[in-house]
């Protein structure tokens, strides 16, 4: 019915946008809305592949102008060495305004994943560190690279997620987000977490990195690295802070990382994928989800949902 009037203006087959083009356009739209409607936004930069995509999208969104907000990295002091080197190189190459924040109080207390366990470490160095930094700089909106396909409770996260002055997330007070109309209003002290790549999947991220030739931390590519096996996870011996059990010796195995975080909490996967097409091939053929390499997600049922309510990103 009524097919006739459509043909005059209808885009030809070649003008149809691809999935990646639409995802990119949606993300750029979200970033521009944020800059237009908030006072003091910041981009949380975790150095991982999702952050790399986020940064690339932001550069595109505001070109030919400069990025109208700083980047901020919450440094737990337990990141992979290669991540820090990559971060500093990117900041230099792109002339980025980069803030690095560490929870000094936690650091002084010697909080770390090995001594205190993943749950306490993540809470103190990551969640509390983030809250300190947001309060210190009075940021009222923070971009993050979370995706809805990562974890069940994130599937229901909004693109613009309201947080109380205490940075808590209330799953019952989520706002409807119809069409492309977003409500960015908030009360004094409240802030927004903004997730421009909510609708991207792990595969989309890789396909886009390949298409756009986006630099990423070399740890994503397989090469022989010294690892030890702990509770089914392959942990990289990244520095001398990782105590070896009696009789434990690191093995050189060809591994890569699907996600990057604090090295003692991030499992590697055995892989020979040393190029992007190989990684994409593996991503399609793989039988485990990427968060499987995240120790913190297994801190009990509903772990992520609870962490989010407490202000974890």
């Amino acid at each position: 019915m009524s097919a006739a009037p459509l043909t005059t203006h209808a885009a030809s087959r070649s003008e149809r946008l691809t999935h990646l083009q639409r995802l990119e356009a949606e993300s750029i739209h979200i970033m521009r809305e944020t800059v237009a409607e908030t006072e003091n936004p910041v981009m949380l930069y975790s150095i991982g592949k999702d952050s790399s995509v986020l940064l690339h999208l932001a550069l595109k969104a505001f070109a030919p102008g400069r990025l109208p907000f700083p980047l901020m990295h919450i440094d737990t002091t337990w990141k992979f060495k290669e991540m820090i080197a990559f971060r500093d190189q990117r900041a230099k190459d792109l002339g980025l305004d980069l803030i690095v924040h560490t929870n000094q109080e936690g650091l002084a207390r010697g909080v770390g994943p090995i001594t205190h366990g993943s749950e306490v470490h993540t809470d103190v160095m990551k969640t509390q560190g983030l809250r300190q930094a947001l309060d210190k700089h009075k940021f009222d909106a923070a971009f993050g690279g979370a995706r809805r396909d990562e974890e069940a409770s994130r599937a229901k996260e909004r693109i613009f997620s309201l947080r109380t002055a205490q940075h808590r997330w209330d799953p019952k007070r989520q706002r409807a987000e119809p069409w492309h109309v977003y409500n960015l209003r908030k009360k004094r002290g409240e802030s927004l977490r903004v997730f421009p790549i909510s609708n991207w999947t792990e595969l989309d991220v890789w396909l886009y990195i390949e298409q756009e030739n986006i630099p990423i931390v070399p740890l994503y590519f397989a090469k022989p690295r010294p690892v030890v096996e702990r509770e089914g996870q392959l942990i990289l011996v990244d520095d001398e802070r990782l105590p070896l059990e009696p009789g434990e010796t690191p093995k050189e195995i060809s591994v890569r990382f699907r996600t990057l975080g604090d090295y003692p909490l991030t499992g590697a996967v055995e892989s020979g994928a040393a190029t992007l097409p190989e990684i994409i091939g593996e991503t399609l053929a793989t039988r485990t989800s990427e968060r499987q390499g995240r120790v913190i997600d297994k801190d009990g049922a509903g772990a992520m949902e609870r962490k989010k309510q407490e202000g974890y990103f």
Partner: peptide
Amino acid sequence: GLQAEREQGITIDVAYRFFSTEKRS
């Protein structure tokens, strides 16, 4: 996804899910 939903055995919010075939996402 959400714990509250599992306990009640109902879906109480919009959940977004993603899958793809060779033809479409």
